[in-house]
Amino acid sequence: MYGTSIVPMFHHALPALLVCLALSACGPLPGRPPDAPFRTEVPPPNPRGLDVAIFALGLVETGYRFGGKNPESGLDCSGMVSYVFDQAAGLKLTGSAAEIARKGRPVEASRLRPGDLVFFNTRNQSLSHVGIYIGDNRFVHAPSTNGKVRADRLNQGWFASRFETARSYFD
């Protein structure tokens, strides 16, 4: 039910996701002053990154479980990332959020693309939480609060002040 067949089901959402990506340059990101000039040279989205973002959106409302690695039993943040990257892009990203961060290429927050990973300090511990960037300053993640996978904004709310870094696994 949650295999790669979910990706084609969400390709109808691709135009909307691309619009969100185009609009994502319109809002400030963490660590960027609100009056700083916008970059106009944002790299184009990677097709595999788009697949990852779309697949992650399909998991919204999936239950949370500490140590969870699949939607049937529940997902935690690193389990969700591992599952999505394996199913949607054929990439094996395993381990904790910190271990996953060490395997990626650093990306400036102003150059995030769908499918990049965003990392947070949520327990007074560096790189303790991870989510998947989907465009428009939004990311999908599996927080322990509220018990479900959800989408949040990078530049608003509790996670905005806890953003640490971003990584890419494409290109």
Rank of each mutant, 00 (worst) to 15 (best):
G49F: 03
L21G: 03
A22S: 15
E41Y: 03
A53V: 01
P15Q: 09
A25K: 02
P34I: 03
P34T: 02
L17Q: 14
P45C: 08
L17E: 13
A25N: 01
F38N: 01
H12F: 09
R48G: 06
C26F: 13
I54H: 02
L29Y: 10
F55L: 10
S5Y: 11
A13Q: 08
I54S: 08
D35C: 03
E41L: 07
D51R: 07
G49K: 01
G3V: 02
L21Y: 14
A13C: 08
F38A: 11
V19A: 10
L29E: 11
P37A: 13
P28K: 11
P44F: 03
P15D: 11
L50P: 00
A16I: 11
C26K: 03
I6D: 04
P33F: 03
A13F: 06
H11Y: 10
P43T: 03
T40K: 01
N46W: 04
C20Q: 15
L29D: 14
P33Y: 03
L50K: 01
T4R: 14
P44C: 02
A22G: 13
S24V: 00
P33E: 07
L14Q: 14
A25M: 05
A16K: 13
V7R: 09
R39T: 04
I54G: 02
I54Y: 01
A22F: 05
R32W: 00
P47D: 09
G3K: 06
S24G: 15
A13W: 12
G27D: 00
C26T: 10
S5E: 14
G49E: 07
M9K: 12
M9T: 13
P37H: 02
L23H: 11
Y2L: 10
P15F: 10
P44M: 01
G31E: 08
G3N: 15
P37M: 05
P28F: 01
A53K: 06
G27R: 00
L21K: 11
V42C: 00
M9S: 11
D51H: 13
P37T: 06
F10N: 12
A53E: 13
P43W: 06
Y2N: 13
P34L: 09
V42K: 00
F38E: 09
V42Q: 07
T4D: 09
L14C: 03
P45S: 06
G49D: 07
S24P: 01
R48P: 05
A16Q: 13
G27I: 00
P45G: 02
I54K: 07
L21H: 11
V42F: 00
P28M: 08
P30F: 12
E41W: 00
V52D: 09
E41D: 15
P37V: 06
L29N: 04
P43E: 14
A13H: 11
L50H: 01
V19C: 02
P28C: 06
F10D: 04
A53R: 07
G3E: 12
G27P: 00
L18C: 04
M9W: 09
V52H: 06
D35S: 14
D51Q: 10
Y2M: 06
V42M: 06
G3P: 15
P47M: 10
L14S: 12
H12I: 07
F38I: 12
V42R: 09
P44A: 08
S24T: 06
C26A: 15
P8I: 09
G3R: 13
P8K: 15
A13K: 14
V42S: 05
L23I: 01
